[in-house]
Nucleic acid binder design. Structure first.
Length: 495
RNA sequence: GGGCCCGUAGCUCAGCCCGGUAGAGCAGGCGGCUCUUAACCGCAAGGUCAGGGGUUCGAAUCCCCUCGGGCCCGCCA
């Protein structure tokens, strides 16, 4: 890559230091303490005072340097936050002080040793006795005040976004904590996490185009999974009773504000329980997550609202009743496919002529009911037409035992009482495959073979992790909750 | 896949409508300053105006194509 004049200057500084016997990329910085501890010690002091206790060693990225002749203020930042360094010629020695001011740049990784202190203006600081370069930044950081704004650069070079934006760092930390909390909650509920194949001979469990690759060893085509479902159900056949997996799934489709080609899915299966049991689990889980979000993001109105909103029990509405009420008509399930298509198109849905009645019903629900579901709401007992792979409802004809939980326009859970009759499963697979259209599921013969050995009655659920994070943190774009979203290849810097 | 918008210095942005020598701030260079925190003051420097083609005496500016990105729609039950 061509070196900019700026980078030339910075590299020259590194070379100058090395020539003077100072390694610009040293190996370690032992005895380091976090900025948080130093801040706390410094905050106990009066302005202008110096902590008389032992000196401390801190480290972090140099964010800004304000020089005033024989004194200078440096903003250091580590994972715990910012910390000011107070550099003075009389503390450090005239020659080292002048040398470091000449050879340091914003963006450098620094170590500093000195006593906690408070500036005359009261800023918690370290009065530096000695400074050490821990890694020279040859390339400059983003602009100090405006940060990195260009949305393309923020995604392609996420490290720069993270350097510049505490908010971005906080959001991704929140994501980690949310996922950890989900694991902890499920562990306490008695579920065990498993790992099932990502490279699979048949990408099943959902309707989506897979990414396809090839195994040279097997001399076979393999697909990256589009869901986790069919392997977890095999484990129910095998005798595991409460299993889940959180993992990446892949769909070979366009991205947008709510879709990325690779995304994280939680799927969970629970033997000897039904979808009503699952509803309780969802309430307990989201109540925890709402409280967590409020703790993690005390300044985020959306996160605070989540804690108030996710208080069980969440209201339940019946899919058909809610839709009919909103539409002001009845007998939807008895309506002809042609009429359903007409209604859906009247509601603004652009549907292909061959769209199934189930798809029309989904579109109608999307249009009439979903926008009204701002608070956590369970939508119960979908028409069988919309959901071929759930178990038929034990009481309501033409329905299946299914619920979705909606919040702020996001579908945050989709659960069934699972189909476990192998003959019916095979029939439905064959219907889907025969259709050959958009809604096709891949036929997984091995899965049907597994069901023939008996899968206990069970409930299962899928939760899109990325969307959970979006909903809890009030983030409008999936790209802001995925560290490295998919982007088109571009001329990358040469090594 | 369709529509609209964006791409100017390392970063944040003016300039584009209405064509006439490419501008500022930050960062960097040189000089000054012992309490700043978007520090400040002075001086000098920094550009493939995303790329290609066209119109024109003359294009960052107007037109076409390509690349990349964003938003909306479609698709993703």
């Amino acid at each position: 890559m061509d070196e900019t004049p700026l980078e030339h200057e910075r590299r020259a500084k590194a070379l100058r230091l090395r020539a003077a016997g100072i390694e610009p990329f040293p190996w370690s910085w032992p005895g380091r303490v976090g900025s948080g501890e130093v801040r706390r010690r410094a905050e106990a002091l009066a302005p202008g005072a110096i902590d008389p206790g032992p000196s401390v060693r801190v480290a972090g990225r140099l964010k800004a340097l304000r020089t005033h002749g024989r004194t200078a203020f440096a903003d250091l930042e580590d994972a715990e936050g910012p910390l000011q360094l107070l550099l003075r010629a009389d503390e450090m020695g005239e020659v080292p002080y002048r040398g470091w001011l000449r050879d340091l740049d914003p963006g450098d990784i620094l170590g500093a040793e000195g006593h906690p202190a408070r500036s005359n203006r009261g800023e918690p600081s370290v009065l530096v006795a000695a400074v050490t370069l821990l890694a020279k930044a040859i390339a400059p950081p983003p602009e100090k005040f405006h940060g990195l704004k260009d949305p393309e650069e923020r995604i392609r070079r996420r490290y720069l976004d993270l350097i510049a934006s505490a908010e971005s760092r906080q959001r991704f930390s929140a994501r980690s904590r949310i996922v950890f909390e989900i694991r902890r909650a499920l562990d306490e509920e008695g579920f065990q996490e498993v790992e099932t194949p990502i490279l699979t001979p048949v990408a099943g469990g959902a309707s989506a185009e897979p990414f396809v690759t090839r195994s040279r060893y097997l001399d076979e085509e393999l697909s990256l999974r589009i869901s986790i479902e069919l392997y977890l159900k095999r484990l129910l056949v095998g005798g595991f009773e409460r299993v889940y997996e959180i993992g990446r799934c892949f769909r070979n489709e366009d991205g947008d504000t709510t879709h990325n080609p690779e995304f994280s899915l939680l799927e969970l299966y629970w033997a000897y329980a039904d979808y009503q049991d699952m509803r309780g689990l969802v309430e307990r889980l989201y109540a925890r997550l709402g409280r967590l979000a409020a703790t993690l993001l005390p300044d985020h109105p959306e996160a605070q609202a989540a804690a108030r909103d996710f208080v069980p029990p969440f209201p339940q509405i019946d899919f058909v009743e809610a839709l009919e009420a909103r539409m002001g008509r009845s007998g939807l399930l008895q309506t002809s496919p042609e009429a359903l298509g007409r209604l859906a198109r009247e509601a603004g849905a652009r549907l292909p002529p061959e769209a199934s009645p189930g798809r029309c019903l989904d579109k109608l629900f999307e249009h009439y009911v979903e926008p009204t579901l701002g608070r956590p709401t369970f939508v119960m007992d979908h028409p069988a037409l919309t959901t071929p792979l759930a178990k038929r409802h034990r009481r309501l004809p033409g329905r299946v035992e299914r619920f979705e939980m909606f919040y702020r326009g996001f579908e945050l859970a989709n659960a069934y009482t699972e189909l476990n009759d192998p003959d019916e499963q095979e029939l439905r697979f064959r219907e889907q495959v025969g259709r050959g259209g958009e809604d096709r599921y891949a036929y997984d013969a091995d899965f049907v073979a597994a069901l023939r050995h008996g899968m206990p009655p069970a409930t299962g659920i899928g939760i899109g992790i990325d969307r959970v994070v979006m909903a809890l943190t009030g983030t409008p774009s999936i790209k802001e909750v995925i560290l490295f979203p998919q982007t088109r290849r571009r001329g990358e810097p040469a090594p």
